[in-house]
């Protein structure tokens, strides 16, 4: 069984975001694999360790910088990579078209991806890819069982846990609580350098969504801060909650 994992290169979640000339400044920002995709890579490796997956292919779309995300996944244990060269300004539609085109050529049984990217927070691309490929899709998974040509997954749904079954091939997108991604070993990092990575051009697709402007969230005005005996602090906090916030008690 072939498992394909889509990964995206994103800003480190600890990065401080600033604007420069009306755009998000990227100078000096540490780049990482989107944490949700990293979990998908780990999930694929665990499927291989269980003997379910035979080969793991990592696919990223973007600039040459995305090669780092592919190499990290290869160092963790994926077998080979595909870099789809695409303008980083591609929107969710154009990105999904490009990824789906590259995925089709690989003919995988399972396509894994993070359910959302920590940068744009769109949570669209895996679902759009599934639609283009005509595959079923399970979102926000925290576990997977693969047997008899089917995948059965638990998902973190709103207000509960949902168990969903689909026939393969399918797109499955991960929640961060699915697993704890391994750190690449030194041996893995060395091996990754020798693993093959193909570079392909993106299928043509125009953006559907236009970014009008970036801005920073309104700054919060400085609040009240009290340093006193805990009982005094608690009494004043209670007064503020009652009089300013107007909380209602259960």
């Amino acid at each position: 069984m072939k498992v394909l994992v889509c990964v995206k290169q994103t800003f480190d979640t600890e990065a401080k975001i600033e604007l420069k000339d009306g755009k998000i400044a990227d100078a000096g920002i540490n780049l990482i694999i989107n944490p949700y995709d990293e979990v998908a890579v780990e999930g694929a490796i665990q499927l291989k360790e269980k003997g379910v997956a035979k080969e793991i292919v990592v696919v990223a779309a973007g600039s040459d910088k995305a090669m780092d995300a592919i190499r990290t996944a290869l160092a963790m244990g994926a077998d080979r990579g595909v870099l789809v060269q695409q303008d980083t300004a591609a929107d969710e539609f154009a990105r999904a078209v490009a990824l789906a085109d590259a995925i089709k050529a690989e003919n995988p049984d399972i396509v894994l991806a993070g359910h959302v990217a920590a940068d744009d927070g769109s949570s669209q691309v895996p679902t759009r890819v599934a639609e283009i490929l005509g595959f079923p899709h399970i979102n926000v998974i925290t576990s997977i069982e693969v047997a008899g040509g089917k995948a059965t997954c638990s998902s973190e749904a709103d207000g509960g846990t949902q168990v969903t079954e689909v026939s393969l091939p399918a797109v499955i997108s991960s929640q961060v609580s699915w697993n704890e991604p391994r750190y690449p070993s030194m041996k893995g990092i060395m091996a990754a350098k020798k693993k093959p990575v193909a570079t392909v051009a993106a299928a043509a697709a125009d953006n559907k969504v236009k970014i009008v402007e970036f801005s920073m969230p309104p700054a919060k005005a400085a609040g009240i801060k009290i340093e006193d005996e805990p009982e005094v602090c608690a009494t004043k906090l209670a007064e503020w909650m009652k009089n300013t916030v107007k909380v209602e008690l259960k």
Partner: peptide, 26 residues
Amino acid sequence: IFNVSDFGVVADLFKVIPTLVSELKK
């Protein structure tokens, strides 16, 4: 956290919360 809070108290939550709960109930 105090840079974004409207009302911050610099104190031990183990002592603050029990008093806060009883004050709110008053």
